[in-house]
Amino acid sequence: MNDIAKKLLKEVSGLDEMPKGAYNIRENSKSVARQSSENIEIVSKEDKSGIDIIVKPDTKSENVFIPALVSCSGVHDLVYNDFFIGENADITIIAGCGVSTGDSCDGSEHNGIHRFFLGKNSKVRYVEKHIGEGTGTGKRVIDPVTEVIQEEGSYMEMETTQIKGVDSTRRFTTAKLKDGAKLVIKEKLMTHGEQFAESKFEVDMDGEDSSVNLISRSVARDYSRQTFISKINGNTRCMGHSECDAIIMDHGVVSAIPEITANSLDATLIHEAAIGKIAGDQMIKLMTLGLTEGEAEAKIIDGFLN
């Protein structure tokens, strides 16, 4: 692994060295390091590029790292990763993708197709960070597709963060929830320059007392554009909530497009969206505490995306 890849690895997953337990590190479309643990098995797919991550039932408090790195230009990576989470397991998955194109005018992209199959009463925390680096004009593109199938009583929390350097992203997440299943998605996004980001969610609550909570906080600076599309279908007694909070700066543009459909009298669905520039009172308050205008703006943005 070269220095660029090591730096990307540190930024997307916090790793300085190979972790304990299960991991798979992908660099430039190839698996470069892998380890299974007693409870978490990682195997290559036979029909296409990617891996299966198989977590035994009742596995508790284990982490699995699966970062993907693109450390040069001209790479078009497509990977299929499937996660099979056994009943009553409770694990954390640290994913993430870093794309570096250096000073090249050629772009690179990473498209990860992830499918999660959560067994009954299992619990997954999924943490994913996307970053892009490079000084050249080559575009850095990350288009993730995520499909989540949750059995009865399962819980999934997804934290996705993309703060800098990715020129274009189209994220598409779908989920199907059975009885008592809960899904929480926290998305943080900042775009700048002329970047574009689209985040689209489609969630079907098919089981009684299932629930989803989608929380998106984003900042669009310069001439960047963002679109947030949330489609929630309540098909039985269930609870759905989506919230899009966005700060626009400079010439940034944000669209929030909610679609909530109650197919049952017992479905409770809420969508909230707020888009606007930083409130003048917030700037004034922090300036009365001694911060400059620039420092106040940075504090507000940092807090908002924290």
Partner: peptide, 18 residues
């Protein structure tokens, strides 16, 4: 008083104290 999403009470006291 102004409200802030994401900024904690601890953060604000830190800012005030410098």
């Amino acid at each position: 008083p102004v409200r802030f999403k994401g900024i904690t009470v601890h953060d604000l006291v830190n800012i005030a104290k410098g």
